[in-house]
Design a protein around this nucleic acid. Structure first.
Ligand code: MN
Ligand code: MN
Ligand code: ZN
Ligand code: ZN
Lengths: 157, 157
DNA sequence: TCTGATAATGGAAATGGTTTTCACTAACTA
DNA sequence: TAGTTAGTGAAAACCATTTCCATTATCAGA
């Protein structure tokens, strides 16, 4: 069965099977954690959350599963400058909720925002089209992050 | 003498001294390399380029200097998803030339683009203002990267 | 339902970019 | 010129992630 760009419809049971991946306890546990917790978890965050309920899921499996999920487009792998990858579900059962990030360079607080997306989305679409044509790139996604100091940190002086 | 947000005018001799940093052979060498080579060098890239002419500059110094330069805002530290930081000069002697990046997820080719910046810049300014106010963030910079397949890689199939 | 092929797993070891340590050197100020 | 101390190189430590490999579990097909 084919691997790779298997982004179909439905939720993840079918998605997994449809792509020829086996459905294991570890994978279910990871997806369960991801859909329950609000985003931006590191592999180890997930490991610790899982470990209490499924003590026999290893950290290696977390990494491997996250890579699979990322390849399937079910999970976004994020980098906020501390040197550990963070992960968030790309879309829940009821569909995507695309957003961008606001990162405090001091305390690493991360804010999801969608407020300005409406206008952004327009320009982004055009930009992607224009860039794709000009540089012969097939653009699949983008990262937009704003960095600065959160209220608490800029107040600290 | 004060360290930190010492982003004055002029070029780097003055900038360095003005911030209380000593001017050393290693630092000059690193800035020299950075201003001669076109962007996106890793610490080790720089190390190797420097090593032929200044064999006694260690990799540790490269890292340390890059961190200083980054804090001074003279260098941008970039992350393109391979797991090594890359660096580019924020501005040359004749001023800044802000740009964003287009990254091939297959061969890691990176394209600098400025083409669409004009329209982007407008929206970004507004967005920064809006986000800053709404979330009480003091936004200092942003990262915009588009990911996809370059012509060569999407052709390969 | 049983079974074989093999995908998936976990623990330990390896990897590799970056950081830390520490004794030594060199830049700068007075 | 001398003293203070920022800066340095080499080696060791760090630590998130990957690789290895022997073992286990999933699941398509019988
Ligand atoms: Mn998010
Ligand atoms: Mn660039
Ligand atoms: Zn903060
Ligand atoms: Zn490519």
């Amino acid at each position: 069965m084919p691997r790779g760009n298997c982004q179909g419809q439905g939720w993840w049971h079918g998605k997994f099977k449809g792509c020829g991946y086996r459905l294991t306890a570890g994978r279910e546990a990871i997806l369960d954690i991801l859909s329950k917790s609000e985003g931006h978890l590191s592999a180890e965050d997930i490991y610790m959350k899982i470990h209490s309920r499924y003590p026999n899921v290893g950290l290696t499996t977390i990494y491997r599963t996250l890579e699979v999920l990322s390849n399937l487009g079910m999970v976004h792998k994020l980098d906020f400058g501390d040197r550990r990858a963070r992960y968030e579900l790309a879309e829940g059962p009821e569909g995507a909720h695309h957003h961008h990030h606001l990162v405090c360079t001091d305390c690493n607080k991360v804010v999801d925002y969608t407020d300005f997306i409406d206008e952004e989305v327009e320009l982004l679409r055009e930009t992607e089209k224009g860039l794709g044509a000009k540089y012969n790139f097939q653009i699949t996604n983008h990262v937009i992050q704003f960095y600065g100091l959160c209220g608490k940190c800029s107040g600290k002086k």
